[in-house]
Computed example of a mutant assay.
Amino acid sequence: MNAPEPVPYTAYDTRLASYAVITDDEGRILLALWNEASDGGRWTLPGGGVELDETVEEGAVREVREETGYDVRLDRLMTVDTYVIPSSRRHVETDRPLKAVRVLFAATIVGGELTPEVDGTTDEARWFTPAEAARLPHVSLVDLALGLLG
């Protein structure tokens, strides 16, 4: 059996995103309600797409501030996760698959106050115990983070 032909990087789209895994002294995790899910709102980690002129670190800090109102310090890289979304499952009309590259950082709040994002991709942010988070309608990124937290 022959291996499938490799797909060159010019034949698919790529999205680089960075996220923060933030926990408090009670062991709760901070999640944001993503409002662009095709099946209604789903909870995710605060974070999102990295702008062209940003590092992944700068993108994570900016996204957390936009989605939660908190200023954070990134403590360490937790993981880099990749997956492919076929063109038929994308949120935009295209015949190109998407390779999603997600960078997760452990982060600590250093300022700000919990504030909902206005006119963005999330509607609110809230703290949940890991057990509560696991029962919420959520994206796979939450499962990844909960697994990393152990």
Rank of each mutant, 00 (worst) to 15 (best):
4 P>H: 00
53 D>T: 11
9 Y>P: 07
21 V>F: 00
26 E>C: 09
110 V>Y: 10
91 H>F: 14
59 G>E: 01
133 A>Q: 04
57 E>N: 05
133 A>P: 00
140 S>Y: 11
100 A>W: 05
20 A>C: 10
130 P>E: 08
25 D>T: 14
15 R>K: 10
10 T>P: 00
148 L>H: 11
142 V>I: 00
29 I>L: 06
8 P>V: 15
98 L>S: 03
111 G>S: 10
143 D>C: 05
7 V>E: 10
34 W>V: 14
34 W>K: 08
28 R>S: 08
76 R>N: 10
93 E>M: 11
96 R>W: 06
81 D>P: 02
132 E>H: 10
139 V>M: 13
37 A>W: 12
69 G>C: 05
129 T>C: 08
32 A>I: 06
143 D>P: 09
11 A>L: 02
91 H>W: 08
144 L>S: 01
63 E>R: 14
91 H>I: 11
114 L>E: 05
127 W>P: 01
122 T>K: 04
130 P>D: 10
50 V>R: 02
57 E>Q: 11
71 D>K: 06
122 T>E: 02
72 V>W: 02
139 V>L: 11
59 G>Y: 01
150 G>A: 13
96 R>D: 07
26 E>W: 06
24 D>V: 09
34 W>C: 09
61 V>R: 01
12 Y>F: 15
4 P>T: 04
64 V>M: 07
35 N>L: 05
37 A>H: 15
52 L>M: 09
106 A>D: 11
104 L>W: 13
143 D>Q: 09
6 P>I: 15
31 L>C: 03
97 P>Y: 12
122 T>R: 03
144 L>M: 12
118 V>S: 11
37 A>L: 08
